[in-house]
Design a protein around this nucleic acid. Structure first.
Length: 748
DNA sequence: AGCACGCCGACT
DNA sequence: GTCGGCGTGCTC
């Protein structure tokens, strides 16, 4: 961390730039603070400042960092104010024009102060100790005064080598670094500074994959789009194993041939490891990796490399979008439907959408890849705004699983149980073949609801009125919304009746009990985010599952992606209806995506697997689409349903209320939106509220279901505001979420 | 976002 | 009598 008060921490400032004649130039500087405005400064006479330069400025009583956002034409004056002078410029890459344009755009679009958006792109230019030059040691031919056994081994290990790195030699000789250093001091070894070899570049011709006809066609089309060098978006749709990655690798290869950079965005870093290996197999080297876990030194290198163009391919989480690429030629957004692309604190943005915006700014192609695209990307493809490439078949992989449904209205499990007879039978067959079965239930804990048998009391969270979920393992009632936890009492808090509390409905813990009773002695494991022991333990257990140590897996959505379970041939969806009737406008879409993903995990090399959906509504579009394998149909029906509900199919933003200092404008804005909301009384969507609370209530009253994004002005009584919103609507508190996503193209 | 200034309650 | 709580305002 940089500390402005500590002079030793001050970064190197470029001091001797060409002096400029005449009056000092005036520059506008944006500071990475939650402020929207720029501040004017005089440029020091010996610094030729340009837009994008990163500078230090005196700011109030302290020094601050900032970025030159604009340079005034010579001779300009600013408001007759006496201006302070920029203190100096950091010797780090400037923010390129395209990136600054993107940041301005995002600020306008998300209603965030520009300074706050700037923080996304500005890593503190820390004064890292200068990079140690890479040194190697070579023998001088002189023997040391004292030739100890360790020294003898070290010199022997070096024999036949021209030079070796100190560490390499130490390892090769089985001695410590101290021995090597001793030999250097004694004059038996000399150090040589190795030339700074640039990291090997990915080679577009290294190992092109053999593509099927369908893949080759898609790859050619995408290559052409990249070669074209213009902005455009392509949706690549194809199930797992259909070759999406191979296809966009060819697009990356094309960008490299054009001498341009490529950015591959991933929803989470946990999934990147295997991607890096596949990339290396195709291009000869791994791409640069960018995410929150990367070391400061590495960050600095990637920053510099992205700006200079030396680093050609970066893969990373959503923050990689804000790297200072100088010649971006392609952005790939993998798993574009993933909710992880949405940032929900600070600046609220959807990285997939912002990738499209950056592509437009940089005039480069953007490829969105998914097996189950988001509705908005599908709509954009349908309307011809995005290109659409489909990769229908699985290529050289296992076949798609056979899907079937069990109608729970006709084949209900016994009371207090959740697995129907046909599903249990299917699992028995699977186990008899020495294969694995997965019971999927997206409900953590023991029971989603706890009721009093005597008075009907339902345990609710005191903060958000959501039902408290019983976690038997942790012996607690927990709110999955806010994290509130309390002990499960013995007596009903409402009527005092003892031993009258009953769990209602299943969670994975309860399902595990049933599985243990049905399949005694069969090794089973329950995987949910409640698993104690953190990510390390999770990794271990997943490896154990992959190795076949467990025959039955009971899991939440956590098992839907990532790890390949080669012996898994049966996926039983215990309650396919979870998530359909929650009032979430995206419920059906999310359920479809999740079920498509989790059922797709069944099957192995030699045989297709089976997936069984237990459902109360086999006629639901989600189920019929899954069963028929026609996602097309689901998307069409879902889009129609959203249109019928008065929702833009691609976004859910219902209102933006900017309650700024101009109260009159705020109220006029709010009234216009309230009129619109009342004209469509079933409107649902996102509500963006900025600032004080009174005005938004008029709009909230016109809505039934909504999500809420609150960007509160300081000192706003948020709790009080939420209570007022709840009083004004019929929306349950559990439905209030912080979110914003709108198709950015609607703003173009 | 920081940071200073300022105005009221409990302490050496 | 001051130390320090945080509410308000300002930063070229």
């Amino acid at each position: 961390m940089m500390n402005a008060d500590d002079p030793d921490q001050k970064p190197a400032l470029a001091a001797h730039d060409e002096a400029q004649a005449g009056a000092p130039a005036i520059v506008d500087v944006l500071a990475p603070l939650a402020l929207d405005m720029v501040w004017s400064y005089l440029a020091p006479p010996d610094l030729a400042l340009a837009a994008g330069d990163i500078v230090r400025i005196p700011f109030g009583s302290r020094e601050a960092i900032g970025v030159v956002w604009a340079v005034h034409p010579p001779g300009a004056t600013v408001g007759g104010r006496k201006l302070k002078t920029v203190s100096g410029r950091y010797d780090v890459p400037s923010l390129p024009d395209g990136l600054r344009t993107l940041l301005d755009w995002i600020a306008r679009y998300t209603l965030a102060p520009r300074g706050q958006v700037l923080r996304l792109a500005l890593r503190h230019p820390e004064k890292l100790p200068p990079e140690a030059p890479r040194v190697a040691v070579a023998a001088t031919g002189r023997l040391p005064a004292r030739l100890t056994p360790a020294r003898r081994r070290a010199l022997a290990a070096l024999d036949g080598h021209d030079a070796m790195s100190r560490k390499g030699l130490a390892v090769a000789a089985g001695v410590s670094l101290a021995v090597i250093n001793g030999l250097i001091d004694d004059g038996s070894l000399e150090t040589r500074v190795l030339p700074d070899t640039p990291a090997p570049a990915p080679d577009p011709e290294f190992a092109p994959a053999a593509l099927s006809d369908g893949q080759a066609g898609a790859a050619a089309s995408l290559r052409a789009a990249v070669a074209d060098g213009q902005f455009g978006v392509t949706l690549i749709e194809g199930v797992t194993g259909s070759g999406k990655t191979e296809v966009f690798f060819e697009a990356i290869a094309e960008a490299l041939r054009q001498g341009r950079q490529a950015l591959v965005m991933m929803p989470e870093i946990a999934l990147t490891a295997q991607f890096l290996d596949r990339f290396a197999a195709r291009f000869g080297v791994r791409p640069a990796e960018w995410h929150s876990g990367v070391s400061p030194r590495q960050r600095e290198r990637i920053h510099a490399g992205a700006a200079s163009g030396e680093i050609q391919v970066v893969t990373g989480a959503r923050s990689a979008l804000f790297l200072p690429f100088s010649k971006l030629g392609l952005i790939v957004v993998d798993e574009e439907h993933e909710a992880a692309y949405k940032q929900e604190d600070g600046v609220h943005y959807h990285a997939r959408d912002m990738a499209v915006v950056r592509g437009r700014i940089e005039r480069c192609h953007v490829a969105l890849a998914s097996a189950t695209p988001s509705i908005e990307s599908r709509v954009n493809a349908m309307r011809g705004r995005y290109g659409h490439l489909r990769l229908p078949e699985r290529f050289g992989q296992r076949a798609m699983p056979r899907l079937s449904a069990i109608d729970l209205r006709k084949q209900a499990p016994p009371k207090g149980r959740w697995l129907s007879a046909p599903l249990v039978e299917a699992a028995r067959e699977t186990l008899a073949r020495d294969e694995q079965a997965l019971f999927y239930l997206n409900r953590r804990g023991y029971a989603p609801l706890t009721l009093c048998r005597s008075c009907g009391h339902r345990f609710q969270c005191p903060n958000c009125s959501a039902s408290l979920v019983e976690h038997r393992f942790r012996r607690a009632l927990i709110c999955h919304h806010c994290g509130h936890a309390e002990r499960r009492p013995d007596a009903c808090p409402a009527c005092g009746e003892v031993d009258a509390l009953v769990p209602a409905g299943p969670g994975v813990e309860r399902l595990a009990e049933e599985v243990a009773a049905l399949f005694p002695g069969v090794p089973a494991i329950t995987l949910s985010s409640d698993l104690a022991g953190g990510s390390e333990r999770m990794r271990k257990e997943l490896d154990a599952v992959a190795a076949g140590d467990f025959r039955i897996i009971i899991g939440t959505q956590l098992v839907a992606k990532g790890h390949n379970f080669p012996r898994l041939t049966l996926v039983g969806v215990v309650d396919a209806d979870v998530g359909l009737a929650t009032g979430d406008p995206r419920g059906a879409e999310r359920t479809f995506q999740m079920l498509q993903q989790v059922t797709g995990r069944a099957g192995r090399g030699d045989a297709p697997g089976r997936a069984i959906l237990q459902t109360h509504q086999p006629e639901h579009p989600v189920m019929t689409a899954l069963l028929s394998g026609q996602s097309e149909r689901f998307y069409a029906e879902e889009i129609a349903a959203r249109e019928a509900a008065g929702l833009a199919p691609f976004g859910r933003l219902a209102a933006i209320i900017v309650a700024g200092p101009d109260r009159q404008a705020t109220e006029a804005h709010a009234q216009a939106l309230a009129r619109a909301a009342h004209a469509a009384p079933n409107a649902s969507g996102d509500l963006v509220v900025l600032g004080p609370a009174e005005a938004p209530l008029a709009i909230v009253r016109g809505m039934h279901r909504f999500r809420l994004l609150i960007k509160s002005a300081r000192n706003t009584d948020l709790q009080g505001f939420l209570r007022a919103v709840l009083a004004a609507t019929s929306a349950p508190a559990a439905r209030i979420r912080v979110t914003v996503d709108v198709d950015p193209q609607s703003f173009f």
